[in-house]
Amino acid sequence: MACVQVIIPCYNYGRYLHQCALSALSQTGVDVKVLIIDDKSSDNTPEICDKLSSEDARVSIIRHEVNRGHIATYNEGISLTTSDYLVLLSADDLLVPGALARAAGLMDHNPSVGLVYGNPISLYGSILPRPRQDDTGWTIWSGRDWVERMCLTGKNFIVNPEVMMRTSVQHRLKGYKSSLPHSADMELWLRAAAISDVGHLNGADQAYYRIHDASMQRTVHAGYLYDLKARRDAFRSALEDPVCELSNFETLLENANRALALTALRHVFSIVDAGRAESEPLGELFDFALDLYPEIRATRLWDRVQSALRAKPGPIPLSLSKLRTVMRKLDDRKQWRHWYRTGVY
């Protein structure tokens, strides 16, 4: 039976911690161990930790005397892991029943796979949506093909709690980079895929990703341009890392830069089209796109944006506005369905 270490970093998430830990401890089909690292919380996290460790011998606790931040906390847990596989589970997220056995089963049967992920469920509030349990097998990607696909789209295919990694791969990569506080996870997954294959679990859901106002994605790491810059930094860091030995890293980086630039320009068009040009940082978005991909001036999208900016100010006809909104939503939905079914865009 595979041994899986679940690392739960916690900073002032005591209100979620008990449910999070139980979602890991209740997993079947694997030997589960849980390590909770309290990064000097000021809420009731210490009391929750004591309760969990007293009730279940599989729970270990580390309590920091000084707050070290999330990246240092993640890496501490990774460095202490000796199990076959590991999962880094934020204290506000949850695992779906059967998630660890499904992921471990894939890696047991595919020694070349260093990273496995599945489908996350967005969790709003306290009521857990019913997860899909129809396991329809898995897809194995050549890691370098997966990296190439990420570069071509400029997107991050993974949310976070739905990932399991082979511990030996994590140790070889030496964990997360502190220079990338917002996109260290994306960068790590790119490096993992550069040195190992990637597995995607089809059908069944793997984890709940909690959406709430106190999350880092909505506080210190908020904003569309911030996210684009973080993705840019993740691609640069991973593709140029010597451990990845990517001989075509320049081409991959060019593809990623082009994809991110076009994404920024599409966002500009949506802002102008919605009549919000006066309240959004269009200049910064243009600078970002041109810096990454100067040739963007020769694209049809650039011409569309310039035409929209030159258009006479005034309200867009309601019928046209509705049509554009519907078309954007349909396109987004199509992309989302493809990602949810295959794990890639």
Rank of each mutant, 00 (worst) to 15 (best):
E284C: 01
D50I: 04
I7Y: 11
E47T: 08
R232P: 05
T325Q: 09
I71R: 01
M164Q: 04
S247F: 09
N248Q: 04
Y224Q: 10
H171W: 04
G143K: 03
A230N: 12
L128N: 04
L285W: 08
L52G: 05
D291P: 00
K229N: 14
A298D: 15
M216I: 12
V113D: 02
Q306W: 00
S83R: 03
D331H: 07
L100A: 05
C10W: 15
D185W: 05
T219Q: 12
I78G: 06
N248E: 12
A72W: 06
G98K: 04
D291V: 01
H182T: 14
Y208F: 11
F288E: 06
S183D: 12
A207V: 04
R333N: 08
C10F: 11
V159W: 05
D108N: 14
D291N: 03
L86R: 06
S54D: 09
L128Q: 07
R172C: 09
Y11D: 05
R337W: 12
P9G: 05
R130P: 06
M150C: 12
E55G: 01
S237W: 07
L201T: 07
D241K: 06
W339R: 14
A193F: 02
V113R: 02
L115N: 00
D31W: 02
R304I: 00
L152T: 05
C244F: 02
H64R: 15
T167R: 02
E187V: 04
Y226K: 11
R58D: 07
V344W: 09
S168I: 02
K33S: 15
L152H: 12
E65C: 02
M107K: 09
S183R: 14
K177V: 08
V30H: 05
N202T: 12
L86D: 03
D233P: 04
V96L: 03
A261G: 08
M216E: 11
G154P: 06
G275P: 07
A103I: 00
S122I: 08
E65Y: 04
R130N: 09
I127G: 00
Y117C: 04
W336C: 01
L301M: 10
V272L: 13
K174D: 04
T251P: 00
L260T: 06
I7Q: 06
N67H: 14
V116Y: 02
R333T: 10
Q217K: 13
H338Q: 14
L173F: 09
A230R: 13
K51F: 10
Q133G: 03
R68T: 02
R236P: 01
F269Q: 15
A256M: 11
L323V: 12
L80V: 10
L323S: 11
S321G: 10
A57C: 06
S247C: 02
A2I: 01
T251N: 13
L285N: 03
G143W: 02
K177A: 13
A230Y: 11
V96I: 08
C20Q: 10
R266G: 14
G69R: 09
H109I: 03
Y16W: 12
S60W: 11
L128R: 13
G118W: 14
A204M: 08
L285P: 05
L123E: 02
C3L: 01
S196G: 06
A277T: 03
N67E: 09
V268I: 15
K334Y: 10
G137V: 09
S196F: 02
D93Y: 00
D197T: 07
D241G: 03
K312F: 10
V147W: 11
S247A: 11
S319E: 13
T136E: 12
A234Y: 08
E47I: 07
W339Y: 15
R232M: 14
H200Y: 15
E148D: 15
R149Y: 10
